[in-house]
């Protein structure tokens, strides 16, 4: 099964909420009026698309209806597809051009940081890259053990200190290790933290600062992990983590379970950080590069 098919299969749930609901209220050939647009607004909101993005889309729909450009469901579908795609286009992939390339992984509690790092490590190792994991989540009970299991599973080096150690020091050691052993990629795991906790966000800044002492231009990628089940708070998370660290990309996890992919549109629209990867299942291979075209197409086909 190709990636496209798999994504389509995994996204059936998303497709059902956005597209099939729209099909249900606007059968092919039915005339579009104000109520239809109101209903579409509701559907987009209920898919966690976010009020700003939704209003922008519905305003445009209204304008087009007035102009007489939208006659039936097919027109509407095409326009919606265009609009959704426009929000997501201009994405970039991971920057791995340095040696070592350093990826800092951050996010709130329970979004799947460690699991994503495991999957990401697997992806790189299977492409023949040498990978180092830095166990900088020294706070949560057994977080180091969890990353260690992943390191063994995928064949990555693990740099760890004791639980409760300075996370910045762990990251620094991992970078030094990668430099001296000529490794390709370092991925730094951090403790989950709510973006509203000032001292914890300061701690993250410190990790990033200390990493620069080993490799001045690191981290080359700072990835925020977002849980797709999260609602509008995802926008706050992206905004505050971006403010603190300067994010280079977003990874959306748990897209296989939730019926909504709407969070992607809202975050991209309002913060403008590219979505680089998506997690679409529990398997080790279920972390995929984010392709906006395929993502939107999969919603519509």
């Amino acid at each position: 099964m190709g990636f496209f098919d798999k994504l389509k299969e995994k996204l059936t749930k998303t497709k059902q909420t956005i597209i099939e609901k729209i099909e249900a209220i606007v059968p092919v050939g039915k005339k579009i009026d104000e109520t239809t647009i109101e209903e579409i607004e509701e559907i987009l909101i209920s898919s966690d698309v976010g009020i700003k993005a939704t209003e922008q889309i519905t305003e445009l729909l209204k304008k087009r209806v007035k102009e007489g450009a939208l006659k039936d469901y097919n027109d509407l579908k095409l326009l919606l597809r265009d609009e959704l795609y426009k929000i997501l286009e201009d994405n970039t992939s991971l920057n791995l051009s340095n040696k070592p390339s350093v990826i800092l992984v951050v996010g709130v509690n329970g979004v799947g940081k460690t699991t994503t790092i495991g999957k990401l490590g697997h992806k790189f190792v299977s492409k023949g890259k040498s990978v180092v994991f830095a166990a900088s989540d020294t706070f949560r009970a057994a977080a180091i053990e969890q990353l260690e299991i992943w390191a063994n599973r995928v064949g990555a080096d693990l740099i760890k200190h004791k639980s409760g150690a300075d996370p910045a020091a762990v990251a620094f050691d991992a970078l030094e290790h990668a430099k001296s052993k000529n490794k390709d990629i370092v991925i730094v795991d951090t403790a989950g933290r709510l973006h509203t906790k000032f001292p914890l966000m300061e701690e993250l800044k410190k990790i990033s600062r200390v990493m620069k002492k080993s490799i001045p231009e690191s981290p080359h990628e700072t990835l925020l992990i977002l849980d797709a089940t999260t609602g509008q708070n995802a926008i706050r998370q992206a905004a505050l983590f971006n403010e603190a660290l300067g994010l280079t990309g977003i990874v959306v996890t748990k897209l296989d379970g939730t019926a909504k992919g709407g969070v992607i549109f809202a975050v991209k629209k309002e913060i403008g950080i590219p979505i680089k990867l998506i997690g679409i299942g529990e398997g080790v291979d279920d972390l995929k590069e984010f392709n906006p075209k395929e993502f939107v197409d999969a919603l519509f086909d």
Partner: peptide, 12 residues
């Protein structure tokens, strides 16, 4: 349940 859950909280 995570208090940050969006619209899907209800389905879950």
């Amino acid at each position: 349940a995570d208090a940050m859950t969006g619209q899907d909280a209800v389905n879950i």
